[in-house]
Design a protein around this nucleic acid. Structure first.
Length: 460
RNA sequence: UCCAGCUUGGCUCAAUCGGCAGAGCAUCCGGCUGUUAACCGGAUGGUUGGGGGUUCGAGUCCCUCAGCUGGAGCCA
């Protein structure tokens, strides 16, 4: 028995029982050797902080095996530490290297660049930075589930393989069992009779359309799963495979939607702040000195609400020299969004009621006939993290919009059905999980918030 | 897809006008009475991303290819 006799470092550090002899297993982060005593910091994965092992009996300790990255088993007594960086440490009675390392081990104890670490996703989670990122990611996931579960939302597993394209949410990955070099590319239309599903199927770009029907049976639902977009972008904010949280709620109008989003973001942010103090202290020290301001911006502010029309007005009145002139009827550019969040408001901003011309067909048409009840939530430094809207629940209006946008009505028959029978006002939004992680950790590249990132031209 | 920048020991970076490729860390050896990403002394380690060109001489200039990074667009 190993695990049954193993004490986790998290428990030792959080509730130390001085004088107790325990057995720990872990990986060497740093080792410091002086004449009469060795210090080894080990991490066992149970928490961000390491345990310091103090070795007095240096005669029988194989110093040359105590390399960064090696796995050790240590038995010893937990004592108060005279050093000021930790409150307790282990006086080692016996130490055994059970998994060797060597001089080729690529991780040094000094800082590496994140680009270098990206080349080794199988090892980088052993570094402080990535270790902390994935702890935050886990806490945030827990917080998301807790939030919706406590509110009685149904966790819906929307399909990964799907026929729907969510109308231009992004480029799709087509899934096929056919051998690409055996396909008759000249056939028009392509012959799908030999295809597995007998028709084209893609990886999902959004679970929203599939979630809406469940909102009209279960009232309040949310999805939380992987999403795939074959966009050619390789920007720090885009990944080909990322996770989205997509709640859909019946009997929520646009105002209800904004209240929920603000409460939700504040709740999960508070949760991360309270449960990951060691990680956040680390990020503040090494990644982003102004991390506190980001938490302040969310926790101690009412989110700003402006309409798209007001946003255009603010931008046009600003003295800022934009490369792209803000014009009503055209979408906001990145530089415009950045100005609003980073310079003008310096806190999260809802930009609402965009012109329907460049927004999706399912967004509910406003009384003016020109704009729709939609929102983007913009946050400082990261930009857009949420898109949401009240959904068009009126059968006739939705049908008209589908026609106007030149979409194939047959494909959306099922989607129209839920407006035909028992329709109800409903709203929903999509949150890019990794973008929130970026905001809450200060990490500047989405590839450093995903265990195994995927991008155009690169599958790590 | 477009634009810009970068590529030098295992890692992070220097190298002035085109003139002897260098430092810190890692590793190894030695030292140090409790260290904190320890410290002190020494050693090992290089076809300067690949290919081509200009030049007496190229890390440095030119062409080309590749990879990476950033920006734009698109989006979450």
């Amino acid at each position: 028995m190993i695990n049954g006799k193993r004490e986790k470092i998290k428990k030792i550090l959080s509730e130390p029982e001085f004088g107790k002899e325990v057995t720990v297993y872990g990986w060497i982060r740093t080792a410091r050797f002086s004449k009469n005593v060795y210090f080894i910091s080990i991490n066992d994965g149970s928490c961000f902080d390491s345990l310091q092992l103090v070795i007095d009996d240096i005669e029988s300790t194989p110093k040359n095996l105590l390399l960064t990255g090696a796995t050790v088993k240590a038995v010893g007594k937990i004592v108060e530490s005279p050093g000021n960086k930790q409150k307790c440490e282990m006086l080692v009675k016996s130490l055994e290297v059970i998994g060797k390392s060597d001089e080729k081990y690529p991780l040094q104890k000094k800082r590496h660049t994140l680009e270098f670490l990206r080349t080794m996703p199988h090892l980088r989670s052993r570094t402080n930075t990535l270790f902390a990122v994935f702890n935050i990611r886990n806490e945030l996931a827990r917080a998301v589930h807790n939030y919706f579960q406590n509110k009685g939302f149904l966790y819906l597993n929307s399909p990964i393989l799907t026929k729907s394209d969510c109308e231009g949410a992004g480029e799709m990955f087509q899934v096929t069992t056919l051998k690409l070099d055996e396909i008759d590319k000249n056939a028009n239309p392509l012959d799908y009779t030999k295809e597995f599903f007998k028709e084209p199927v893609n990886l999902t770009v959004s679970g929203q359309l599939e979630a809406e029907p469940y909102a009209l049976s279960h009232g309040e639902v949310y999805t939380f799963g992987p999403t795939f977009r074959a966009d050619p972008s390789t920007t720090p904010k885009h990944a080909s495979e990322f996770w989205m949280i997509e709640p859909e709620m019946a009997f929520y109008d646009f105002e209800d939607l904004m209240i929920l989003i603000e409460d939700f973001i504040k709740s999960v942010t508070r949760n991360v702040k309270d449960s990951c103090p060691s990680e956040l202290a680390f990020f503040k020290k090494f990644i982003n000195k102004e991390l506190d301001k980001r938490y302040d911006a969310i926790l101690n502010n009412k989110f700003e609400k402006i309409t798209y029309t007001e946003a255009i007005d603010i931008l046009r009145k600003s003295k800022k020299n934009f490369e792209n002139e803000p014009v009503w009827g055209e979408d906001l550019f990145s530089e415009h969004e950045r100005y609003l969040t980073d310079e003008y408001f310096k806190k999260p901003v809802f930009v609402t009621d965009y012109p329907s011309s460049f927004k999706a067909f399912y967004m509910r048409e406003n009384e003016d006939g020109k704009t729709v009840a939609c929102l983007d939530l913009l946050v400082p430094y990261v930009g857009e993290i949420i898109t949401g809207s009240q959904r068009e629940e009126r059968y006739d209006v939705l049908k008209r919009k589908i026609e106007e946008k030149g979409m194939d009505e047959n494909v959306y028959e099922w989607y129209l059905d839920i407006r035909k029978w028992g329709s109800a006002p409903h709203s929903g939004f999509g949150l890019g999980f990794e973008r929130l992680i970026m905001y809450l950790t200060g990490m500047e590249n989405i590839r450093d918030t995903i265990p195994y990132p995927r991008n155009k031209g690169k599958i790590y």
